[in-house]
């Protein structure tokens, strides 16, 4: 399933909303998750899962094409842990 299919499904259940409005709602949903993680917080969606961030230390990486070493700065990376209910549903 891709984003546009999700929008279609929501739109078909909400005939009072225009597709563009549903687009904005779906965007707001995903944007609020990204903003929360960018602010250093976490997002917990019971049953589905939880989004958080993990810290990565700075390291010396290499340009795979040239072999030149480059400094990779410390950063946070997004992390998702599926919820119990979701994990169980995948194996029903």
């Amino acid at each position: 399933m891709i984003r546009s299919e999700l929008v279609q499904k929501i739109a078909s259940e909400n005939s009072d909303l225009r597709v563009e409005e549903v687009e904005r709602i779906v965007d707001t949903f995903f944007d609020s998750i990204v903003e929360q993680l960018a602010a250093g917080g976490r997002v917990e969606l019971r049953g589905f899962g939880a989004f958080s961030t993990r810290a990565r230390e700075s390291r010396t990486g290499r340009n795979p094409r040239t072999g030149a070493s480059v400094d990779v700065k410390a950063k946070n990376v997004p992390y998702f842990k599926p919820g119990k209910e979701m994990r169980e549903r995948l194996n029903d």
Partner: peptide, 22 residues
Amino acid sequence: SILDHMSNALADGQNVKISGFG
């Protein structure tokens, strides 16, 4: 319902791809 549709697709064996998100 956003969460339901995503969960249902996954339970149904489909990957869920949200452009700009993941």
